[in-house]
Design a protein around this nucleic acid. Structure first.
Lengths: 147, 147
DNA sequence: CCTAACTGTAACCAAATTGGTTGCGATAAC
DNA sequence: GTTATCGCAACCAATTTGGTTACAGTTAGG
């Protein structure tokens, strides 16, 4: 299988905040995700720790973007909620008495980091604002009920 | 966390097969991995299904490369043992009554596939032969005991 | 033909992770 | 002070993971 879906949830939430341009509660976001508020607060909490969103407590509180949607990339969201390693390394060190075992970890580390970097670089090219634009385009393409 | 370490194990095994240029048993490979033969057979079984290695049963049997080490990339090993998706999608479909929920899955799918493709492309640039070369170089750099 | 050395595979295990949930305390607006 | 919100700990079932045991099937060699 793959990683957790936290990235998808985080990006979904960020897109909502950028789309509606107002503070949203964890309940509102949870409804769109067909999930529940606690899960949303968990993930948005990571985004807040990473400086992507702001939260305010108490009545009327909720979540809002900490910077413009053009200044938040999918990569920002990804690293905020997910561990750095996407490709898992050896579960434990190989046998150092084997010539391959002695060196493979260090060699693989370089290769895997390069591959992960390529993925991050691609994620970094799309902003939350791009996603909002795409949502609006997709919505316009729907058979409208207004006429 | 990240994916399973099957890729790392598969690449390790392929590198051994290319380095020693002879048939190896799952026990020999397991020893280098500090793991056990059944696990190795499981993973090498996937590599065989993908056409990367050959196995022969019975006494004197074991595993060997099905093609030259220059014709096997890290990407080949990766897709042979791991599911395609590296970035997890939504755990379940979002609420289609929300404008963002309606479209985010399809939009994210394109972005995530592009990011995964970038990673695969990078993995595809390194061959098992490259790793063997790097092992030999690293080994030569070690303080030798022979003099 | 028998035995030893292999692969193949099913069954099982403990540990970790995941998405989800409940409960409750803290905070702030009204 | 009541209500709406976040913050957080605790817990849960399901899944995945690396690992292990057990054993059947296959092949080479004596």
């Amino acid at each position: 299988m793959s990683l957790s879906s936290r990235s998808a949830v985080a990006i979904h939430a960020l897109t909502m905040l950028a789309r509606w341009e107002r503070s949203l509660t964890s309940a509102e976001i949870a409804e769109s995700l067909a999930s529940n508020p606690v899960l949303v607060r968990r993930i948005l909490g990571s985004l807040r720790d990473a400086g992507l969103v702001l939260s305010s407590e108490g009545r009327g509180g909720g979540w809002s973007l900490a910077r413009g949607p053009r200044e938040i990339t999918l990569h920002d969201a990804h690293i905020a909620v997910e561990s750095e390693q996407v490709l898992a390394r050896h579960p434990h060190p190989p046998n150092s008495e084997c010539e391959v075992g002695r060196h493979i970890q260090a060699i693989l580390e370089v290769e895997f980091q390069a591959a992960e970097q390529a993925m991050r670089e691609r994620l970094g090219r799309t902003t939350i604002d791009d996603l909002v634009s795409q949502v609006l385009i997709a919505e316009r393409a729907l058979p409208s009920r207004r006429h």
